[in-house]
């Protein structure tokens, strides 16, 4: 019994060490989305391009949709843009967009320069709709299932690795669930 008591500090150390070891891989600034598995919020946004469709709740559902939140003033958005161009070029991917707190003219110029991968773009000038989505920075990317429920959110720029490991497997699972 006494021997066991001497082992106790070592045991406690091991347990605490286990937590610390796991903590090495965690991102303390990542905020889990409260919107996961919840339906897309009620909203309707005007279109960025005159004459094209804006973005509203009704645009989600029927089939899986991807939503990218971007702004022309956002540096990381520029970094991830080629990745989204490549994603949107796939026949099985449809990317919608929300232009976050951006001057529509600036957004249009940005897309004219870098290419426009988006099927529909809604303009959220005051960022109010983004708050309903739980957006806390740009860029963010959401996956919405065929039932119009938010299933996944990625915070920060998409990279080739994130697309291959996080986005596409989930996207394909959502599509298979829809068939």
């Amino acid at each position: 019994m006494n021997r066991l008591l001497f082992a106790l500090p070592v045991l406690v150390l091991l347990i605490i060490g286990g937590f610390f070891y796991r903590g090495l891989d965690l991102d303390p600034s990542a905020v889990p989305s409260a919107m996961i598995d919840r339906p897309v919020p009620d909203f309707a946004l005007p279109a960025l391009h005159p004459g094209k469709k804006g973005l509203s709740t009704a645009d989600f559902g029927g089939q899986p949709k991807m939503l990218n939140v971007f702004a022309s003033w956002c540096g990381p958005c520029r970094v991830e843009h080629p990745i989204i161009m490549r994603l949107a070029a796939r026949a099985d991917v449809e990317v919608l967009a929300l232009s976050y707190k951006d001057d529509p003219q600036a957004s249009r110029a940005w897309l004219a320069e870098l290419g426009d991968p988006y099927r529909q773009i809604g303009v959220d000038r005051d960022g109010r709709v983004a708050i309903d989505w739980g957006v806390y920075g740009v860029p963010e990317t959401y996956l919405v299932d065929a039932g119009g429920r938010i299933r996944y959110r990625h915070v920060g720029p998409l990279t080739a690795a994130v697309v291959a490991e996080e986005i596409l497997p989930r996207w394909q699972a959502l599509q298979q669930a829809n068939q």
Binding site: V31, P32, S33, A34, I131, G134
Partner: peptide, 8 residues
């Protein structure tokens, strides 16, 4: 606000 951003 917690409904949008979670308990965090």
């Amino acid at each position: 606000i917690a409904a949008r951003y979670g308990d965090y």
